[in-house]
Design a protein around this nucleic acid. Structure first.
Lengths: 342, 342
DNA sequence: ATGAAAGCGCTAACAT
DNA sequence: ATGTTAGCGCTTTCAT
């Protein structure tokens, strides 16, 4: 039988109210008494009952805020599914949640969304942080004011968040490199399409991939293109690359612009000539896995990322955890036409 | 603000007790009144609050039983981790759980474990059912007596269970076939190691694989061996197969006996000659992925299987769901040396 | 600073 | 057949 505050109250010869105040640092209790209560609670192995707490605090429930750079990028659909799924599971706890979606990587826009949620009042925040000093400072101030923060999919340095939930980008690059090496039998001329932002995580994916491809002397990186995270730009750049380099037989899409790039291949009727490797399971990728153009794609469990972010955030708020900057990496999985989970 | 039984009671002009009795079919309420209450509840969009219910029924908590054919097979370690993780998450709901582990596929032993749990009294059961008429009948009788059942990892026909949580075995075979075809560049002489039980799911894995390999005219299935789900038998059979067939350059372990088979390869010093494909991420597989002997393994998310089984079972019990024979397939994921999650 | 008591939504034992 | 009431473990308001 688990120990309750009632048990502690009896053991400490005080009332349940005092135990509650002491254990939750609500103030208004003699320091000596508080210390004694805490030590007794620890001795008895007290673990607060989350569901009872949730029932009791139902009148002013936990408020969650979410800010995602999701507009115009189909990758986020499943992250949002995960967020909503976790939210539904927690609905009995009486929580509320507001999702703010934005397009691209404009820090001013993100700061604006942050301000909006701050004014409405939130106890926790899930965010895909844009890694700039201004965003960093804003998040740290938010955290100082008592709001718990979980970063989803994108990491940011020097922010005292509770957790980063996302993939290991370097490792995802390695995984891609390995599958490229193995399935092309170590013979290929590779074109790499990246985003132009010099985004840290994109770079990691390229580095991870090339570090593995070093083991294959006959795989040559023939050309790079920058898609600027825009499908149209990607479409044009891929076209240009393929027309310029007749030798290219393999394409590696790091992220963003994959849909446009695949369209370019079809418009050039170069499906037969090319083997394509991508990330994630967005509709265009699934379609082309089925058609055989895309050989494999690396999945990073977007649903799990969304769901875990919300769950960890709620957990942190309920148990008053102190920020630990924990890295929670989701699995990286190779998908071919048979094991897609679109 | 969610609607509660109190709201319904007021709307129906009855007491909360009557609403509770009506909504939960506890009997002792006028059929007409019950129908009216139910209709009002539906109209108001009533959703029972699980955590309040759990708090109230804490004195006689939900009792879960688990029966796994896990002894001697490292695959199950992560299933059990998943089961325990879900159990921990539900601990605030005051549930109890007993895990019974057994070795191999002896139906008498399984029926015995079933009897044990039945005598102790359980509200729900997670089981890896041995697909025989006796087990089928025993499970159906259990279900008729009001116990919810979830099948984990193994499916069974004609049992009115709540859900099967596990992988799609045919699809896992296809996925393996595709990776074998792609990474061997369509050229190989294949040895297949299966279990001897003629187990349905093993057969599906072989069929799935060969159905895909039909697309590769130069991949030949040179030999089959039966490991009888025993590491020693597997060790000997693999040795025999490799010594007999000098041409074999690729091995496909369907399951059970992988550890012993890998050991045989090492003892024969044939690591250089062979490319191996396996299932799951058991220690021996991880080790040999790192060494390069195993090219890829197909993961079926054992942790998720365990956790989901328990969660779905609990959910079904709490909400009195009627058995639906739902198939919940976990993801199938290709793992190489870079994205293992051992 | 501490205690007492009401209440969160639901169940179950006891009255009527 | 229906109503009333006392909790489940915790928070919160009101007394003291």
């Amino acid at each position: 039988m688990p120990v309750t505050i009632k048990d502690i109250a009896k053991a400490a010869n005080v009332s349940r109210g005092t135990v509650d105040r002491a254990l939750n640092d609500r103030g208004g209790v003699n320091p000596d008494v508080a210390a004694r209560i805490k030590s007794i609670a620890a001795d008895m192995g007290y673990k607060p009952n989350t569901i009872a707490k949730a029932l009791a605090t139902r009148s002013n429930p936990v408020r969650l805020g979410v800010i995602l750079n999701s507009i115009g990028n189909p990758f986020w659909d499943k992250v949002i599914d995960g967020i909503n799924s976790a939210y539904d599971n927690l609905s009995d706890f009486g929580i509320s949640m507001e999702i703010r979606k934005m397009r691209g990587y404009d820090q001013e826009r993100q700061l604006h969304e942050l301000e909006h949620l701050k004014e409405k009042g939130i106890d926790g925040l899930v965010i895909t942080p844009i890694s700039t000093p201004k965003v960093r400072d804003a998040l740290n101030e938010l955290i100082r004011s008592g709001v718990q923060v979980v970063c989803c999919n994108l990491d940011i340095d020097d922010v005292a968040y509770q957790a980063y939930v996302g993939c290991d980008y370097f490792c995802s690059g390695q995984t891609a490199g390995a599958i490229i090496g193995m399935t092309t039998h170590g013979e290929s001329n590779l074109g790499i399409i990246t985003s132009s932002h010099g985004l840290y995580f994109h770079e990691m994916r390229v580095k991870g991939c090339t570090s593995v491809l070093k083991n294959y002397p006959n795989i040559h990186i023939t050309d790079y293109a920058e898609a600027e995270d825009d499908e149209e730009v990607s479409y044009n750049e891929v076209k240009k690359m393929l027309l310029k380099n007749e030798k290219i037989d393999t394409l590696y899409f790091v992220t963003g612009g994959t849909t446009g790039g695949l369209r370019a291949i079809h418009d050039l009727h170069m499906e037969k000539r090319l083997r394509v490797f991508t990330f994630d399971q967005i509709p265009a990728v699934i379609e082309n896995l089925k058609s055989g153009l895309v050989i494999a794609t690396i999945d990073q469990q977007p649903f799990v990322q969304g769901a875990t972010s919300v769950r960890m955030l709620f957990e942190a708020i309920m148990t008053k955890q102190i920020p630990t900057r924990r890295q929670v990496f989701t699995e990286l999985n190779i998908k071919n036409r048979y094991n897609i989970t679109g």
